[in-house]
Nucleic acid binder design. Structure first.
Lengths: 218, 218
DNA sequence: CGCGCATTTTGACATATATCAAAGCTCGCG
DNA sequence: CGCGAGCTTTGATATATGTCAAAATGCGCG
C-alpha cells in the first residue's frame, strides 16, 4: 500500500501487511459467496477473477498482478461476488477489512487511498464495458495487449516482450470472444507485422499500429 | 443517504443534503474530464452515464434513478471519467466529496456506507460484464427489463408496468446491441407473450418466462 | 527423453447480429 | 388539431464471430 506516512503509522500498516499467504497455481484464493473478511494485496504472481452464471457460463472479469488489491466487490454484501484463481504460484497478503476501516478513520491518507482504489476499479470496469459493448474482436485484443504491456512496464518488466499467463480461452472469456476468434486475431496481428506470437510468448513490434487497431479495427 | 444516525450527526448530513439542483432533460450534470468536486444523489428523475471512445462511439454504462449516487468514478483521478445526462427533468443533491471524506472519519457508519456504495457499483459492473461478455441479445434484454422492474418495485412503483425513459438506441448502447436488434427482441418477447410493448410503455406479463429467458435464451 | 494430454492453430461452414432501407408511429409544437 | 421530426418497427441482405472438426504444437510427467 503506497501511502505516504511517517513512523508509527507506517509501523501499523507494516504489521498488518506482514503475514503473507501462498496460493498455488490453479488454487482459489476465494470463491463466490465465501464470507468476506479481508482484501488481498498481491505480492507476487497473478490472479484471474471470474463470475459464474447460473447455467455454468463463466466470465473472466479481470487479470490482476503484483501490487493490485482484490476483493473490493465483497464489501457490499460481506460475501465475495466472484472467484479469484491464481494463474501461477503466488503470494498474497490478507488485509482484514475491519482493521482497514478502523485505521482509515485515523489515517486520512489511508482512507483516501481506499476510496481511490475503489474508484479506480469502477473506472477500469467502465473501460471494459466500452470494450465489450462497442469494440470488434481485433480491437478488443489490441486493447488487451496494450493494457497488459503498460501494466508490465510500470512494474519494471519489458513492455514489448512478455509471457501470457492465461490461455486463449481465458482471454476469450475476458474479451467476450471464443478462443478460436482470439487465436485468429493473434495470427492476423502477426501477419500484419504488429506482433510476434509464439503461443504464449508475445512480442509487440509496432505499438503505434496496435494503438491504431484499437480505434478503427483495420 | 440512508445512514442510521442520531440527532446532531443526522443534522450535519441533512445540512449537506439541503441544496438541491435542477437538471433539465437532456442536460449534462457533468462531462468527462470535468474537475471533480461532488458526488450527486439523485432526488427525482433519472440519468444515463456514458463514456465516449476516441472515434465518437459511445457506450452507455448505466441508467440511474432516484436514490442512487453518481460520480464515484471521479474519485480516482479528480476528473469525471464519464458523462451524466438527465433523461428527464431531474433534481440532484451535490455532496461535496471533501466534506464527505471529513465527516466519514467521524461517522463510522457513513464511512462504511460509502465503502459499500462503491463496492456495490463494482458488483453491478461485474454483472454488466457478464451480460456483455456472455449473453445473447434476447438474454441481455430480458436481464435489462427484470433489473429495471426490480428497481422500480423497490421504489414503490409497479414492477410490471412502466414507461421506459430511454430510447431503443440508448438501450442498445447499454446492452452492446444495435437499436434494430433491441426493437426486434422487444417484438419477439411480445409475440411469445412475455411482455406487452407499446413503444416505451412496457408491461411484463410473464416474469418467470422472462427470467428463464435470461438463462438459456429460448 | 519420449509419451500423452491439453492447448493452440487453422479450415469449412453456420448463425446471430449488424447494416441498409423504407414505412409507420408518436408526440410536441405551432 | 394537424404537421413534421425523430423514433420505432420491419424486411432483405451482409458480415463478424461462433461452431464443429482435425491437425499441429507444446509441456508436464513418468
Amino acid at each position: 500500500m503506497p501511502v505516504d506516512l511517517s513512523g508509527d503509522d507506517m509501523q501499523r500498516i507494516n504489521d498488518l501487511v506482514q503475514k503473507k499467504q501462498r496460493v498455488a497455481r490453479g488454487d482459489y484464493l476465494y470463491r463466490s459467496n465465501d464470507p468476506f473478511h479481508s482484501l488481498y494485496a498481491i505480492r507476487t504472481g497473478s490472479f484471474k477473477t471470474q463470475v459464474l452464471h447460473a447455467d455454468g457460463r463463466e466470465q473472466v472479469t479481470g487479470f490482476q498482478m503484483t501490487g493490485e488489491i482484490i476483493g473490493l466487490d465483497a464489501i457490499s454484501t460481506d460475501l465475495h461476488s466472484c472467484d479469484a484463481v491464481a494463474m501461477e504460484d503466488s503470494e498474497v497478503c490478507a488485509l482484514p477489512f475491519n482493521q482497514l476501516e478502523t485505521m482509515s478513520r485515523e489515517l486520512p491518507s489511508l482512507q483516501r487511498h481506499l476510496y481511490k482504489i475503489m474508484s479506480r476499479e469502477i473506472v477500469r470496469d467502465q473501460g471494459i464495458m466500452l470494450l465489450l459493448g462497442s469494440m470488434r474482436a481485433e480491437e478488443r485484443l489490441a486493447a488487451f495487449l496494450l493494457n497488459l504491456s503498460q501494466r508490465l512496464a510500470r512494474r519494471g518488466f519489458s513492455a514489448t516482450q512478455f509471457q501470457l499467463r492465461m490461455s486463449r480461452q481465458e482471454i476469450g472469456s475476458y474479451l467476450g470472444l471464443k478462443l478460436e476468434t482470439v487465436s485468429r486475431a493473434f495470427s492476423h496481428f502477426q501477419e500484419l507485422g504488429l506482433i510476434n506470437v509464439k503461443v504464449r510468448a508475445i512480442e509487440i513490434i509496432d505499438v503505434q499500429k496496435l494503438q491504431a487497431a484499437v480505434n478503427c479495427s483495420s
